[in-house]
């Protein structure tokens, strides 16, 4: 158990030239939480996730994941996290088994452990039909599941999911929700989405980003559930419209 949160961000800034993609973002996520990152398109959700996973460095600010300074010890943090990017793109020349083996090897799993994890994940995520197919050639639904399986093969402390149900049909969405619920038992889950129902169903707490700034954060119930968050979105949209006119 950590003194602070499993994920702690303080005063995060990310600039792209004159544009502030993130501006003074601070928050903390507790162990075992399913934490929602919300915001309209372009609000900075993906930028924030990319920083939290060590893919990009912030312009300023600090992040600690699992008690480790992400900026100074990025690789140590990346050993403890799993990441499913938005619209997961998988290696077209590796089979699903090959991809899972590659990720398992990079995480330093022993051969026996790796194979037993792959077997468990194939059953858990229903990948039996595609296990020997080229990963990049699988359908969108399968790609999402494969990417999720790759993200958790090493049983990470924190799993970051960037719009995991985007573009999936209702049945696939339902299946993915189930998988996320099951994940939440063993890991902290950070879920970036613009689907408010998803947040209502899955998340205990959420952070709403608006043009790179924290608009609101707290328990989903405190934010008024999906309806309350929708109201925040409406307000920000109307404010933007007013500013444009």
């Amino acid at each position: 158990m950590m003194d602070g949160g499993v994920v702690e961000a303080k005063g995060l800034w990310k600039d792209y030239g004159p544009l502030h993609a993130l501006a003074d973002v601070s928050f903390s996520i507790g162990e075992g939480e399913v934490f929602g990152l919300l915001g309209r398109n372009g609000s900075g959700k993906t930028t924030l996730l990319r920083i939290l996973t060590g893919y990009r460095l912030p312009t300023a600010g600090s992040v600690r994941v699992a008690g480790i300074d992400l900026i100074r010890r990025s690789r140590a943090v990346r050993r403890r996290i799993g990441y499913m990017p938005e619209h997961p793109q998988l290696y077209a020349d590796l089979t699903v088994r090959g991809l899972l083996r590659f990720v398992g090897n990079v995480h330093g799993l022993s051969r026996a452990r790796r194979e037993s994890r792959i077997e468990a994940l194939v059953t858990h995520f229903g990948l039996g039909a595609v296990i020997d197919r080229l990963a990049g050639h699988c359908s969108k639904g399968y790609r999402a599941r494969i990417s999720l399986a790759a993200a958790v093969i090493h049983e990470p402390a924190v799993v970051f999911l960037d719009e995991p149900t985007d573009g999936l049909d209702p049945e696939q969405r339902h299946q993915t929700h189930e998988l996320i619920r099951q994940l939440a038992g063993g890991s902290t889950v950070v879920l970036s989405t613009h689907d408010l129902d998803e947040v209502g169903v899955l998340c205990s707490r959420a952070l709403v980003l608006d043009r790179g700034r924290v608009a609101r954060t707290g328990a989903v119930d405190e934010l008024g559930g999906a309806a309350g968050i929708a109201k925040i979105f409406r307000e920000t949209r109307e404010r933007d419209r007013e500013q444009e006119t």
């Binding site: 060590g54 893919y55 690789r75």
Partner: peptide
């Protein structure tokens, strides 16, 4: 181009 770098760069590889 295929955006697989996101997977590679978020793995614990230097």
């Amino acid at each position: 181009a295929r955006r697989t770098d996101e997977l590679l760069m978020t793995l614990p590889l230097s």
